[in-house]
Design a protein around this nucleic acid. Structure first.
Lengths: 335, 335
DNA sequence: GACCAAAATGGAACCGTTTCCAGTGTAAGA
DNA sequence: TCTTACACTGGAAACGGTTCCATTTTGGTC
């Protein structure tokens, strides 16, 4: 591989001049610029990223951690982040968790990996992180933003929706449609955002005069398959409910499949409500009524904040729009 | 940030010794090892990735390009790649394309980004790449593997299913179920794998005595939404077919939604067949009959080949299992 | 033609590692 | 006691860029 010295020699200039041509820093005569450009092309010179990052101490790269590679939930968020980064000519290095069970340790390992990688800032999505973990990350790389996890100590670095309010909106919507007997498929207990949305949902029910303790609940792991299994377990316990709230859309998709398998028509025999507002929810059979969280927007704002931090930019970080129930066809109004 | 020199000073040894302790290369006395380890811990020393990669010329990192961040198709493949990489203690840097339209140029830019990033090898998934593009990539980084794109010149580096055979299997399955009037939702014409599977499908139909030219066709872009639109267009042209073959499962999901919207029961009024065998296809309403391509396996084998190339490993690269039709409930047998 | 500021330039020092080589200390063998 | 081998060690050189400083060149002014 050709180095900057080879280019300098070929162009008949010093290495400093070559560097200035490449980076556009400092004055270079038109003549020298041309000779350097030609030499670069002829030698197919490509500057080494490692050699470049070493003296500069900056890599124009943001590190992103996402709990899972797959699934309909995380990837659109990643897409939004990536698009924004590209707009600003920045690079992204992603690290993924293996499973939701190992999310916490994966996120910690990911933060180390990304920091070691010379990322200028970290955008981390992991609800399973404890306060001490976040302190650890802050020590590793003070320039970071947290997505969907909030701790008072780092309030300014935390971005995410008000899950409790959003959960409450779901509860109120079901009550308003006349449902009095409701079941819930919740996510993993370790996930703080799950706990909040379930709490909000049950509180709303309570305000409508429904005893939260009477609500049958099953737990899934946010995957469609787990939603199916949870729904089946719920059906097996005797189907004395008219509506089913799922802690995310993917589990709701599984619940829809389970309902069909059980011979239940949605929404005539059973209403199903999701959460998150993933794109796929528009294309289920029937189309899913869900609580839309403006995830892409939230992610973009978190990133804006991070870029302001890292590069002294001045990107807007407006308050997020609140979550809203999107009425499609999976919830029926009953007497 | 502490450097290796600080550690050496604190431990009262030379930098060479510290480096040997960290890398486990060369002999170091137990005493020195302990002092170094302690100093590392006390100073919270973390070796700089950039400084390390510079003299070594290797980064223990594989670069992966995937056409899209989001969607149900690419991410499980990425997941399989990531899992294998972790098993071998290697890192991954991913680059994504923006849209399927820009796949070709994004893949090219991605190859450059990943190479500049010091990746030891490249795993690239992009059907839109032309032969010259691949030559360019080979020049950039001779250690590469191609997923789902095959060119004779680089036969050994290419991995992917036999789309034509798989498409034919779909066609035969529909014929065997008694369907004589069939429609097709195909993917983008620029996508070589799409062309192959459609060709195989139509050839199989032809062998069953169905005129390929009589088959109504609409084009989508592999997204669920485009599948819905294509199905609607097909319905609008008069629904004189009993079965619909979709070039991938995601478009089939969209077609299912369109069918419901049109008041068509699947499979009673219309049979729908997918392609790929994504996980979600098991949870649609009704569960989708599809051609299962062993994508995870293919990706793993491509990666094995690449690792053998990069690190002189000796990982198995067995022939892939052929694609198979998985019968679920979206295709009816008719008279 | 002399002078000066600004533009342009070459090259040394530096970034933080790895690697290699020369050198020291020690134990075993003659 | 003297070699000899070997384990261990320190430090210089190298990796390929960026940056800064000293120096040369240029163009404009009087």
């Amino acid at each position: 591989m050709a180095t900057i010295k080879d280019v300098a020699k070929r162009a008949g200039v010093g290495v400093g001049t070559v560097s200035r041509v490449i980076a556009g820093s400092g004055p270079v005569s038109a003549d020298a610029t041309n000779r350097v450009r030609r030499a670069i092309a002829e030698l197919r010179f490509r500057p080494s990223h490692a050699a470049r990052a070493l003296p500069k101490g900056q890599s124009q790269t943001i590190g992103v951690f996402v709990p899972l590679v797959h699934g309909a939930f995380y990837t659109p968020i990643l897409h939004a982040i990536y698009a924004t980064l590209r707009e600003h000519g920045l690079h992204m290095v992603v690290d993924f968790g293996r499973t939701l069970e190992t999310e916490r340790q994966d996120a910690l390992a990911g933060a180390e990996f990304l920091t070691d990688r010379g990322c200028d800032g970290l955008l981390i999505m992991a609800t399973a992180l404890k306060r001490a973990d976040i302190e650890h990350i802050a020590q590793l790389q003070p320039k970071f933003a947290l997505l969907n996890r909030s701790v008072p100590q780092f309030r300014a670095n935390c971005f995410g929706p008000d899950h409790q309010a959003a959960g409450a909106a779901a509860g109120r919507a079901l009550c308003a449609a006349g449902h009095r007997r409701v079941a819930v498929i919740e996510g993993p207990a370790r996930s703080s955002d799950n706990r909040l949305r379930i709490r909000g949902f049950l509180e709303a029910l309570s305000e409508c005069g429904i005893d939260p303790d009477s609500v049958p609940r099953e737990q899934g792991d946010f995957s469609p398959e787990s939603g199916r299994a949870a729904a089946e377990a719920l059906f097996a316990r005797g189907r004395n409910f008219t509506a089913l709230f799922c802690a995310n859309d993917e589990m709701a998709i599984g619940a829809l499949a389970a309902a069909r398998q059980a011979g239940l028509a949605v929404p005539q025999d059973l209403s199903v409500m999701g959460y998150d507002g993933i794109d796929l929810a528009a294309l289920t059979v029937p189309p899913l009524t869900t609580v839309v969280i403006p995830w892409r927007q939230i992610a973009t704002h978190a990133l804006h904040h991070l870029l302001n931090l890292c590069y002294g930019m001045n990107l807007p970080v407006p308050p997020d729009v609140p979550a809203q129930v999107l009425y499609r066809e999976s919830v029926a109004r009953i007497a």
